[in-house]
Design a binder for these strands. Structure first.
Lengths: 195, 195
DNA sequence: AAAGTATGTAACCTGTCGGTAACAAGCAAA
DNA sequence: TTTGCTTGTTACCGACAGGTTACATACTTT
């Protein structure tokens, strides 16, 4: 880079992180890889971001990695539909975003301050929804949390797995048709539970 | 090793793989690590096993990584209890075995012949059970597969996650109490579904 | 114009990885 | 005893990782 423009350089570096993360995951986003993909000397990575950890933290911060989806207001009489919509959105989000899948995968093998922060935020957001659903539906909160955990947990797992594996319990987790089947099961469950 | 005993050496190497896998996972089981933990020259790893891939394949083969649990025979009138028992066993298995958790984690980031083989076997075993439950209960097979996927998927996810994270949706996934809550939810679900 | 500072690069250092070559020591068969 | 095979070790190789030093080039301020 002959152009002397710090802002642009920082942007290039962050974009390179994005490319690497989406293609190969956070594990592959090392100094040398980021330097070569961005076409910027690695010295500048240290100079402008301090370390790889801080660079990745900045990347996570920039790409607001959490439910920013808008939901319909929950009323006493639409708890069931609201719940279905939440999980539908969760599935869409994960299936659409390679970076998010890579983040969830990384989280399973790593523990650092940035990840801990994301976990706390996720925990708060999720528990807000779970609390609201419990209040509106009259269901025991542990039960609601349990159901929610079964769904988001397996969805997270399957979305990560799908990058290396096409079928799980006969479900085609790589194709829309497989996920429609799973959505039907989730709807079925809610119909049985919220009677 | 001054004792010249090929069998013993091979055993030492495989034991070292086990130690490393349980403590740090398959990703950490490289030639150098195995050599230093086993106290054996790495040359012998190549000589006796060919490559790391083959060594790990042998390790997987030796440690029969799949449901060897015995279940009560399923009858028409105990499908519900049978199902609960299957998932209870699945949870116990994963929670007890660090190596199995590491295998499931490794599976999310890797694709190789050994893993593909394990997946096929798991798929067959799981579908056998799902088919049987569907037949005995009269439930649609996609529905049974879906429910099964929700449970085993989230259990797999949570067991892996628990090594780095204590709480998920207010559930203490590191302690028995958290898992008892989840088991209660699973039982609740089956009670609602198999009416 | 001169001095100082921000931005950039090339080259190098140390450590570790997977992998191999060369050699030493034991054992077994001729 | 000598020949040959198995089992073992040491030392090395090239590739690449993270990280730093030293230096060149441009822009700003006085």
């Amino acid at each position: 880079m002959t152009t002397k423009d710090r802002n642009q350089t920082e942007r290039r570096i962050l974009e390179a992180v994005g490319k690497i993360v989406e293609a190969e995951g956070f594990e592959a986003a090392g100094v040398n890889a980021v330097a070569s993909v961005s076409g910027v000397s690695k010295v500048l990575i240290y100079r402008y971001f301090g370390s790889i950890e801080q660079l990745l933290a900045k990347y996570l911060e920039d790409n607001d990695f959490w439910l920013n989806t808008e939901f319909p207001a929950m009323q006493h009489d639409n708890v069931k539909e609201f719940s279905k919509a939440v999980f539908r959105a969760y599935i869409d989000m994960l299936r659409k975003s390679p970076a998010l899948r890579k983040l969830y995968r990384w989280e399973l093998t790593t523990n650092n301050p940035a990840i801990a922060g994301l976990r706390e935020r996720r925990e708060r957001t999720a528990m807000d929804i779970i609390n609201a659903v419990s209040r509106q539906s009259g269901q025991d909160i542990d039960q609601v949390a349990g159901i929610s955990t079964l769904i988001t947990g397996s969805v997270s797992y399957l979305c990560i797995l799908a990058e290396n594996c096409a079928v799980y319990n006969s479900l085609e987790i790589n194709s829309d048709s497989g996920w429609e089947k799973l959505l039907k099961t989730i709807d079925f469950m809610f119909d049985k539970i919220f009677d």
